[in-house]
Simulated scan of single mutants.
Amino acid sequence: QKLGIALALLNNPKLVILDEPMNGLDPKAVKNVRETIIDFKNQGVTFLISSHILSELVKVTDSILIIDKGKIIKETTMEELNQSNE
């Protein structure tokens, strides 16, 4: 996972697509990947992340797009999503 992410970031891309980037990683590696995503995001890189680990997505995302069977069913910000669950 870490090698794949490193390769994806190698040429200073504007968009990085990651599929389950935290899957199978130990807690220290998850933290490192999360920090790397945030660092690159702060430099203007856009990430499209597919993941079922919502607790990790909350820590790195600004906006969320929920897709079911190929159709967008919800597009929102993390802040709006958190407020709707209160």
Rank of each mutant, 00 (worst) to 15 (best):
L54K: 13
D26K: 07
G24Y: 12
Q83R: 13
N11E: 08
E75Q: 12
F40A: 03
I49K: 00
L81R: 04
T61Q: 09
T61R: 05
L81W: 09
K31M: 13
S84D: 11
K2R: 14
I64T: 06
S55E: 14
K14P: 06
K31L: 14
I37Q: 01
I72K: 10
I64P: 01
L54V: 15
S55T: 13
V16N: 06
I66G: 02
S51Y: 09
I73D: 02
K71E: 14
R34W: 06
V33K: 04
I49V: 04
P13K: 04
L48P: 00
N82F: 03
L48G: 02
F40I: 02
V16Q: 04
I17V: 09
L10F: 12
K69R: 15
A29T: 10
K41I: 07
K28P: 00
Q1G: 13
V58L: 13
P13G: 09
K14L: 07
I38R: 12
E79M: 10
D68E: 15
E56H: 07
N32W: 15
P21V: 02
L10N: 13
E56L: 07
I53N: 09
R34V: 08
S50K: 03
L3V: 12
D26V: 05
L48H: 00
S84K: 14
I17T: 00
I49D: 01
V45L: 05
A6Q: 11
S51Q: 08
E20F: 10
K59D: 12
N82G: 04
I53D: 10
N42D: 09
S51K: 10
V60T: 04
I67W: 03
R34H: 09
S63E: 14
S51P: 02
K59A: 13
D39R: 11
N42L: 08
M78P: 00
L25F: 03
L15T: 03
I64A: 06
T77N: 09
P27H: 06
L25N: 04
L25M: 07
L48K: 01
L10Q: 12
E80H: 11
L18S: 01
I53V: 14
S84I: 06
K2V: 11
D26S: 11
P27I: 04
D19L: 04
G4V: 08
P27R: 02
L81E: 12
L9N: 09
F40G: 00
D19P: 03
V30C: 05
N85C: 05
I5Y: 05
I17Q: 01
D39W: 00
